[in-house]
Simulated assay, not measured.
Amino acid sequence: MENIVLISHGGMAEGVKSSLEMIVGQQANVHTVSLRPDSDNLQFEKELNEKMKALNGSTLIIADLLGGTPCNVAVKNYLEDDEVAILAGMTLSVVIEAVVNQRATIKELLCLAKENIVDVKAGMNQAEQEILEEKQEELGDYSAYAGQENIVNSRIDERLIHGQVAGIWSTSLNTQRIIVANDEAAVDPLQKSSLRMAAPTSMRLSVLPVATAAKNIRAGRYGKQRLFLLFKNPQDVLRYIKADGPIKAINVGNMSYKEGAREVTKSIQVLPEEEPIFEAIAAKGITVTAQLVPNEPSIDFMKKLRG
Rank of each mutant, 00 (worst) to 15 (best):
V264N: 04
N251D: 13
P276C: 11
G253Q: 02
S267Q: 08
Q269W: 15
G260N: 11
Y257I: 07
V252M: 00
I277Q: 03
P246E: 09
G253W: 01
G223P: 01
I277F: 03
R226S: 04
Y222M: 09
E275F: 01
R218K: 15
Q269E: 05
Q225T: 04
V237T: 02
L271T: 09
M255T: 02
E274T: 07
G253F: 02
P276I: 13
A243Q: 11
V237M: 06
G245Y: 07
Q225V: 00
I247L: 15
I241H: 03
N233Y: 10
K248E: 15
V264F: 09
N251A: 09
E279L: 09
P272H: 07
E263C: 10
Q269M: 11
R239D: 05
K215S: 11
Q269P: 00
K266I: 04
T265K: 04
G223T: 07
G220W: 01
K258S: 11
K242C: 07
I217Y: 06
G260K: 11
G245A: 09
I268E: 03
E263N: 13
N251E: 08
K232P: 00
K266H: 10
A261S: 15
A249V: 02
I247E: 05
A214I: 08
I277G: 01
N251W: 05
F278W: 10
K258W: 06
E273V: 12
I268W: 02
R262Q: 14
V264E: 03
N254F: 10
I268S: 01
I241P: 04
R226D: 01
F231M: 06
A261C: 13
P246S: 12
Y257W: 13
L271K: 13
M255L: 15
L271H: 08
N254G: 12
Y222P: 10
I247G: 01
M255A: 03
K266Q: 10
F228K: 00
E274M: 12
Q235T: 12
L238Q: 13
E273M: 08
K248Q: 15
R239Q: 13
E259V: 12
S256A: 12
R239H: 09
P246N: 12
L229M: 04
K248W: 07
F228S: 01
D236C: 08
K215V: 04
L271F: 06
Q225G: 00
E273S: 12
I277R: 02
E275W: 01
K232A: 10
L238W: 10
I247V: 14
